[in-house]
Computed example of a mutant assay.
Amino acid sequence: MDAAEALASLGGVAARGEILALVTEGALRRAVTDGSVLRRARGRYALPAAPRIGERAELRELAEAGRRAAHELSGTAILLSAAARWGWPTKWVPTRPQVAVPRNRRVPSLAKRGIDVRMRDIPSGDREDGWVTTRVRTALDCAGLLPADEAIAVLDSALREGAVERDELLLGAARLPPRYRRKAEDRIRRASPLAANPFESVLRWIVSDIPGLTLDPQVHISDEEGLIGIVDLADRGLRLVLEADSFAWHGDRAALERDCIRYNRLIAQGWLVLRFSWDQVMHHPERVRALVIRTVQQGYLRVRRPLPDGYAT
Results as ranks from 00 to 15, higher is better:
Ala57Gln: 13
Gly12Trp: 05
Leu171Thr: 15
Ala70Tyr: 06
Leu7Gln: 11
Arg294Gln: 14
Ala77Ile: 07
Val93Thr: 13
Val132Ser: 02
Gly229Val: 11
Ala255Val: 00
Leu79Asp: 14
Leu146Cys: 03
Trp271His: 01
Leu59Met: 15
Lys183Gly: 02
Arg135Glu: 15
Leu242Trp: 01
Leu266Phe: 11
Ala244Arg: 00
Arg175Ala: 15
Val136Trp: 00
Val32Lys: 03
Trp271Cys: 04
Thr214Trp: 10
Val296Trp: 02
Arg56Tyr: 00
Ala153Cys: 08
Ala254Phe: 04
Tyr300Ile: 06
Glu225Thr: 14
Arg67Phe: 06
Gly130Tyr: 09
His283Asp: 09
Val132Asp: 02
Ile53Ala: 14
Asp245Arg: 09
Leu79Asn: 02
Ala174Glu: 15
Thr134Ala: 03
Asp309Asn: 08
Pro108Glu: 08
Trp278Phe: 15
Glu18Gly: 06
Thr95Tyr: 02
Ala148Ile: 07
Leu47Arg: 07
Glu58Leu: 14
Arg103Met: 13
Trp92Tyr: 12
Leu38Cys: 01
Val231Leu: 09
Ser124Glu: 15
Arg187Asp: 11
Arg287Tyr: 02
Val231Phe: 06
Arg127Phe: 00
Arg182Trp: 08
Gly17Ala: 08
Arg105Gly: 01
Glu5His: 12
Gln218Asn: 10
Val219Arg: 08
Leu194Glu: 13
Arg120Ser: 04
Leu169Met: 13
Pro147Asp: 05
Leu155Ile: 00
Ile115Trp: 00
Ile228Tyr: 13
Arg56Phe: 03
Ala153Arg: 07
Tyr263Arg: 15
Glu58Cys: 13
Leu194Phe: 15
Thr90Asp: 01
Ile53Leu: 12
Ile53Pro: 01
Arg294Val: 05
Ala82Asn: 03
Glu185Met: 15
